[in-house]
């Protein structure tokens, strides 16, 4: 195998890994937003998921259990948001911000004595024989469990939203809450479920960072990925498969920066580190310029509080 080919394969694999936390976080937010819930607190839910997942995995030695804990922790954080934004009808923007601030503080607080502790790795799903097939092996079979789970999740969400009755009801709640209510659908319950799903996914996305990607706990280790995930949902115009595309583009931008440095091109690492954030801005600008298209795709009841009396 040529050097360039093996570098290219390594870059693809690294891109998928870098994109995976974004896939989880963004697909969860996508479901919540399709139900009309704008939860800006992804960053907080990811951090809480990352730290709780890490604590459980490090103390039991069981990384899979860490992911379960991360999902539950993310759901717990989302439940705070749900109680306020859904039941008490608080401003969703402000409540999401509060969750982002609270989650970051709580995670730093919980994780302070877990910084720098190493973690046992998690076995890869496919056997060595499959992984060592030239080219196709590392690209198709070389990844960890969660990369495959993220793909399955996107497929599952796409199927659920567009091919099932439940998905139709969820979208109805997000598009027109009054009509959905008039038809007898439990608007609040559906929004709660969507919010909790979003929390679980954000938790797993955070857990991926602390359990597999790094794998360590560090304060604020999500480094804005929760916010990038929000931008990804807009980029995807609320369609599941495009989330995947967007997440890998961002993963690719991150990895490309590292590759440029590795290739010995003299560019300051701090300037390279800016690229995913600048790319997010550029993508937002490009996608948002067509205001009509954004308006057509945005769930019409997004961020609107619901009360049967109103």
């Amino acid at each position: 195998m040529g050097d360039e080919l093996s570098t290219a394969i390594a870059v693809i694999a690294a891109t998928l890994r870098a994109g995976t936390p974004l896939v989880f976080a963004a697909i969860g937010e996508l479901v919540a937003e399709r139900a009309g819930v704008l939860n800006l607190g992804i960053e907080g839910m990811m951090l809480v998921g990352a730290v709780v997942g890490f604590m459980v995995a490090a103390s039991t030695g069981l990384t899979p259990l860490g992911f379960v804990a991360a999902a539950l922790a993310g759901m717990g954080a989302a439940a705070i948001y749900g109680a306020l934004a859904l039941n008490l009808m608080t401003n969703q923007v402000a409540t999401g911000l509060a969750l982002a601030i609270f989650g970051a503080g709580l995670a730093a607080f919980l994780g302070q004595s877990w910084v720098g502790i190493p973690l046992p790795g998690m076995a890869l799903p496919f056997p060595e024989t499959l992984r060592s097939i030239p080219v196709a092996g590392p690209i198709l079979f070389g990844h960890d469990w969660l990369v495959y789970l993220s793909l399955l999740t996107v497929a599952g969400v796409a199927f659920f939203l567009h091919r099932t009755r439940g998905g139709l009801i969820l979208r109805a709640v997000g598009e027109n809450q009054e009509s959905a209510h008039a038809l007898g659908y439990p608007v609040l319950r559906i929004r709660w479920l969507a919010t909790l799903f979003g929390g679980a996914m954000a938790g797993i996305g955070g857990g991926y960072l602390s359990l597999i990607y790094t794998p360590q706990w560090a304060e604020n280790m999500t480094a804005g990925r929760g916010w990038i995930a929000l931008a990804l949902v807009v980029f995807a115009t609320w369609r599941p498969w495009r989330v995947l595309l967007g997440a890998y583009v961002f993963g690719g931008v991150t990895i490309l920066g590292l590759q440029i440095q590795a290739a010995g091109i003299a560019i300051n690492s701090n300037l390279v580190a800016m690229t995913p954030y600048l790319a997010t801005i550029i993508v937002l600008v490009l996608i948002s310029r067509d205001a009509t298209r954004i308006r057509l795709h945005t769930p019409a009841s997004l961020a609107r509080p619901f009360h049967p009396e109103a």
């Binding site: 008490l88 009808m89 509060a98 601030i101 609270f102 503080g105 709580l106 730093a108 607080f109 304060e219």
Partner: peptide
């Protein structure tokens, strides 16, 4: 106590404020 406790209190404060505000109108 870890300095991060400041962030926990800040978040809690905003949560409670938003929740309490609901009862101004409801």
């Amino acid at each position: 106590l870890p300095i991060a406790i400041t962030g926990v209190f800040q978040g809690l404060l905003l949560f409670f404020l938003l929740g309490a505000d609901t009862f101004v109108r409801w």
